[in-house]
Amino acid sequence: MTLRQRRRTLRARTKVAAALAVAALAAGGLAACDFSSGATAGRPSATSARPSPSPSPTPEWDRSPRSLAAVGDSITRGFDACTVLSDCPEVSWATGTDPGVNSLALRLLGPSGAAKRSWNVARSGADASDLPEQMARAAAHRPELVTVMIGANDACADTVDRMTPVEDFRASFEAALARLRKGAPKAQVYVSSVPDLKRLWSVGRGDALGSRIWELGICATMLGGAQDVSVQAQQRRDTVQERVVAYNGVLEDVCGKDDRCRYDGGAVFDYRFTQAQLSRWDWFHPGRDGQRRIAEIAYRNVTAAQAP
């Protein structure tokens, strides 16, 4: 073999060796890529193999609480359900002792338990701004369940402009839950939706006596001028109805962020009540039968396996 031939052979061998080296490096690179890609190779990467922290368990809802406190307004106080212009807490849907109403406390605790381990700290005329103080009073009893019904007075102002702004309503409810959590961190909360005030107008406006009583100033934003069906009056009622719907949205949203809070899913708002459920003195507050129906809704939702 000549010198030139030996040089060509050496160059050829060098090229082959270089090609083999490149191929080996490429194969190694692909293998490395395959190993690092769990999706391609079917193997978890070092990152995905690392165990993720377990989420904190959601507290289980206690369907049989052994004590109860109620916060809210005149509905929870049983106002105008027994006598005119008077509270009647014994028929309250939440804590009443009247067996005909069969309140939530009676259903959950029995007569003896309701008498000893239920507290009604609601106040007639209260609106959402009163809730934080009421919650602090409720928390002092260390109840296992707190019921909330608020919002009707926030919508039932003298004029539409004086209704509680939605942002203020939210701030008050959030502050109320914070006060409860400070004093009774493990208490469960059952939140009732605000009743349908427009249905109230629709149901009661046909009663001559009831509509005259409304003119004394009961929920003027919705019930004032009950027989007025002008465009302006309808727009006013629609505005109030939208505000009530917004309040219920706040109650649902804020409650949904608390593991120990259960909203009624709009059950009270959706209830198709009739005149039979209204007070005979003001055609606005629930009478005994109305209180009983609210108690039934509450008991069903508190004892349900799942939230509404």
Rank of each mutant, 00 (worst) to 15 (best):
G125D: 05
R293T: 13
V191I: 08
F79C: 00
A114S: 03
A246M: 04
R123I: 11
V189L: 09
G206S: 09
C82Q: 13
A276N: 14
A12N: 10
A152R: 08
T164V: 08
A136P: 03
P195W: 12
A19L: 15
G72D: 08
D154H: 03
A24L: 06
S129L: 15
E174G: 05
R179L: 05
Y247V: 00
L177Y: 02
T76M: 06
A246P: 01
L145F: 07
R123Y: 14
L209A: 15
T164Q: 08
R292P: 01
Q134S: 06
V22D: 05
A267L: 13
A208Q: 13
T95M: 00
R162F: 04
A246V: 04
Q188Y: 13
S52Q: 13
A46E: 04
R272M: 04
F169K: 08
A32H: 14
R300T: 15
D130I: 08
S64A: 14
R43N: 10
V160E: 07
L177W: 02
A128I: 09
C219N: 01
L108R: 00
R288K: 07
V191K: 05
A140F: 10
L108M: 12
A46Q: 10
P111S: 10
A27M: 14
A139R: 10
S86P: 02
S129A: 15
R107L: 02
L145S: 05
A70N: 09
D258R: 02
A69V: 01
R162E: 11
G151V: 08
S37C: 13
D264K: 03
T83L: 14
T95A: 02
L25K: 04
D98V: 02
W61Y: 09
V244Y: 06
S45W: 02
A176C: 06
F273Y: 08
D228P: 07
C82P: 03
S124Y: 06
P89G: 04
P51T: 10
T303S: 11
V194S: 05
Q227C: 03
L251P: 01
C33T: 11
H285C: 10
A126N: 13
S36D: 10
T83K: 14
T76H: 04
E60F: 06
A24R: 02
M222V: 15
A70Q: 05
A23L: 15
S64K: 15
C33L: 14
A49N: 01
S45K: 00
A39C: 06
A32Y: 15
E167W: 07
G78S: 05
P143F: 15
